Amino acid sequence: NQASVVANQLIPINTALTLVMMRSEVVTPVGIPAEDIPRLVSMQVSRAVPLGTTLMPDMVKGYA
């Protein structure tokens, strides 16, 4: 089972991601792979992401 990136806190719209905002977790459906966490740092979210939400490619500007 592949771990995905999950929000560790509420991430407001247009916030630049930092390591403390993200954790890896095995979830369904699968989201952005956990190994991409270093690449996500400083990228902005395109919408508010609630705590515990799996990050999907369309939620991060410039990821897809």
Rank of each mutant, 00 (worst) to 15 (best):
V60K: 01
V49D: 02
R47T: 12
I32R: 00
D36G: 06
R23N: 07
A34L: 04
V41L: 08
S46H: 14
V20T: 13
M21T: 03
T53M: 12
Q9W: 07
P50A: 14
G62Q: 12
V60G: 01
L55H: 00
V20P: 12
E35I: 09
G31C: 03
I37D: 00
T15N: 04
T18L: 07
V5Y: 00
V27P: 01
P38A: 11
D36P: 01
N1W: 11
Q2G: 15
T15Y: 07
T53G: 10
V6S: 02
R47L: 10
Q9M: 13
Y63W: 13
I11Y: 00
M56D: 05
L55D: 01
S42T: 10
M21P: 02
G31A: 03
L19M: 11
A7S: 15
V60Q: 01
V49H: 02
A16T: 06
E25I: 06
M59R: 02
A3W: 05
N1L: 15
R23G: 09
A3N: 15
L19W: 09
V45M: 10
T15M: 09
S46Q: 14
G62Y: 08
P33V: 13
A64D: 14
A16E: 10
P38D: 07
R47D: 10
S4Q: 02
Q2Y: 14
R39I: 13
E25V: 06
M56P: 02
R23Q: 14
M59P: 01
S46L: 13
A64G: 14
D36M: 12
I32Y: 01
R39Y: 14
A7V: 08
V30W: 06
L51C: 04
G62H: 14
Q9S: 08
E25K: 04
V45D: 02
V60P: 00
S24Q: 10
M59I: 06
L17I: 14
P29Q: 09
S24V: 11
R39E: 08
L55V: 12
S24E: 11
E25C: 05
S24F: 11
T18S: 09
T28S: 14
G31D: 01
L40R: 00
I13K: 08
L10T: 13
V41W: 04
Q2K: 05
V20F: 11
V41G: 02
V27W: 03
V60A: 01
V45E: 01
Q2F: 10
Q2D: 15
D36Q: 12
L55M: 13
P38L: 10
P12I: 06
A34W: 09
T18G: 05
G52W: 05
P38F: 15
L19T: 13
N8A: 12
Q44M: 07
L19E: 09
Q44P: 11
M22V: 09
T54I: 10
V60E: 02
V6H: 02
D58T: 12
V60M: 04
G62V: 03
V49G: 01
S42D: 06
P12W: 04
A48W: 06
L19F: 14
A48G: 07
L10M: 12
V60C: 02
S42G: 12
I11S: 01
V27A: 06
A16G: 06
M21E: 02
M56N: 08
R23V: 10
P29E: 13
T53Y: 09
P12L: 09
A64T: 13
V26H: 06
A48F: 08
P12V: 06
S42K: 08
S42P: 01
I11M: 04
M56V: 07
V27K: 10
L19K: 12
L40N: 00
I13M: 10
V20K: 12
L17F: 02
V41K: 04
M59K: 02
L19I: 13
D36C: 05
A16R: 06
R39V: 10
T53D: 10
G62F: 07
E25R: 04
G31S: 03
V49S: 02
S42E: 08
V26E: 15
A3I: 09
L51N: 14
T15V: 10
M43E: 09
Q2W: 12
G31R: 02
V26A: 13
P33L: 10
A16N: 12
Q44G: 04
Y63R: 03
Q2P: 15
G52S: 08
A16W: 07
K61W: 05
S4D: 01
V45G: 01
V26D: 15
I11K: 00
G62R: 06
V5C: 05
N8K: 13
V41S: 03
S4A: 03
L10Q: 08
A64H: 15
V41A: 07
N8R: 09
